[in-house]
Amino acid sequence: MKLSSAMFKPRNGMLSAHLFENPRVGVDRDLYWSVHFDFASFQYEGEIEEPNCMVDWLVFPLHELTLQQSILASKTLNPMGEASCYFQGTHFDASLWELSVRRLETAKSWSLEYDLTIDFWTVDEDGPTELQMKGVTDLEFGGFDIVKDNFTPKVITQKDAFDLLNQHIAVDKEWNCYDEGFKFVIR
Score class of each variant (00 low, 15 high):
52 N>Y: 15
82 E>D: 14
73 A>K: 15
86 Y>H: 12
28 D>C: 04
37 F>Y: 06
73 A>D: 10
68 Q>P: 07
23 P>N: 05
87 F>E: 05
70 S>F: 09
89 G>L: 08
29 R>A: 06
96 L>M: 11
25 V>R: 11
58 L>M: 07
51 P>W: 02
78 N>R: 08
51 P>F: 02
108 K>P: 00
68 Q>F: 14
29 R>V: 01
41 S>D: 10
66 T>Q: 10
97 W>L: 14
87 F>T: 05
71 I>W: 14
100 S>L: 13
18 H>Y: 05
41 S>K: 09
80 M>K: 12
51 P>S: 02
32 Y>H: 02
38 D>T: 00
81 G>I: 01
23 P>Y: 03
69 Q>N: 10
48 I>W: 14
70 S>W: 10
79 P>K: 02
27 V>D: 03
26 G>E: 03
91 H>Q: 13
49 E>W: 05
20 F>M: 08
45 E>P: 00
80 M>C: 10
57 W>N: 12
97 W>H: 15
25 V>G: 00
44 Y>T: 04
37 F>C: 02
22 N>R: 13
60 F>P: 03
79 P>Y: 05
25 V>S: 09
24 R>N: 11
92 F>Q: 01
78 N>E: 06
96 L>G: 04
47 E>R: 15
70 S>T: 10
73 A>F: 06
95 S>M: 14
62 L>D: 05
57 W>H: 10
38 D>G: 00
99 L>F: 03
85 C>K: 05
93 D>P: 08
24 R>E: 11
33 W>L: 00
76 T>P: 01
58 L>W: 04
29 R>N: 00
98 E>R: 15
30 D>H: 10
62 L>M: 09
82 E>I: 13
93 D>H: 13
29 R>L: 06
74 S>K: 12
80 M>W: 10
61 P>G: 08
50 E>F: 09
28 D>L: 13
24 R>K: 14
42 F>N: 02
45 E>T: 08
100 S>G: 11
40 A>P: 00
25 V>W: 04
28 D>Y: 03
100 S>M: 13
90 T>F: 12
101 V>Q: 05
49 E>H: 10
108 K>M: 13
